[in-house]
């Protein structure tokens, strides 16, 4: 049976487009370790998986009671693949892990399970806090426990050593960023880096106050 002309032209264009798009997609595929590191809301899938599953509707942004989940627009330094996705900037507003709610509000709002429900909030692994000892007051001999006071799981995720200096216990850290938000130095001395990443902020002597 001969296909009507219109249909074959459509099929041809569709196929051609798909091949071209696929080719471009092959070049542009975000790969783990290469994709820009953004802090994601709790329950987020691993970054590459997350970029695929997030439908970019922004419902998690609107649902966050603390306004901690931010919308990522196109801007300098933001990878196009991350456009429309949610992220957390702890120095502005950290994630409180919704203590007053039965469910994490961003997770409950996500239509595509890019953010997945957690059995226990303590299982959230948004990232891990790192202490930049060169800047940290406590490591300079000044008494300061701001991060330890802010940590929702003090003694477990963020402990104090024998000399009362903060130490991160990565296995219990949710990456909520309460410590980074509370840190008293101009540039935070404790920063949350996305899972598997090291903080990009390299400590310089000038940054230490």
């Amino acid at each position: 049976m001969k296909l009507p002309v219109g249909l074959s032209r459509r099929t041809l264009l569709f196929t051609g487009g798909a091949l071209a798009g696929g080719g471009a997609g092959f070049v542009a595929t975000p790969r783990a370790g290469v994709v820009p590191a953004l802090l994601r809301p709790p329950g987020a899938r691993a970054e590459v998986e997350f970029l695929a599953a997030c439908i970019r509707c922004g419902q998690c942004v609107s649902a966050c009671p603390d306004d901690a989940v931010r919308f990522t627009g196109i801007a300098a330094g933001v990878h196009l693949a991350a456009h429309g996705t949610p992220r957390i900037v702890p120095r502005e507003v950290p994630c409180s892990l919704c203590p007053e709610y039965e469910r994490l509000q961003c997770v409950a709002a996500c239509p595509t399970d890019a953010l997945r429900p957690l059995a226990d909030r303590r299982d959230a692994r948004m990232g891990t806090a790192w202490i930049l000892e060169e800047r940290c007051f406590a490591y300079q001999g000044v008494v300061c426990r701001a991060c330890w006071h802010a940590c929702p799981y003090p003694g477990e995720a963020l402990a104090l050593d024998a000399r009362l200096r903060p130490v991160v216990r990565a296995e219990a850290c949710t990456g909520c960023g309460m410590c980074e938000h509370a840190c008293l130095t101009d540039e935070p001395s404790v920063v949350v880096a996305p899972p598997g990443r090291r903080p990009t902020a390299l400590p310089t002597p000038e940054a230490v106050r």
């Binding site: 997609g25 595929t29 695929a52």
Partner: peptide, 13 residues
């Protein structure tokens, strides 16, 4: 076609 092809290969909508 391009949108669907790119989405499938690149793993991005």
């Amino acid at each position: 076609g391009a949108a669907l092809g790119f989405s499938w290969v690149a793993g991005l909508p």
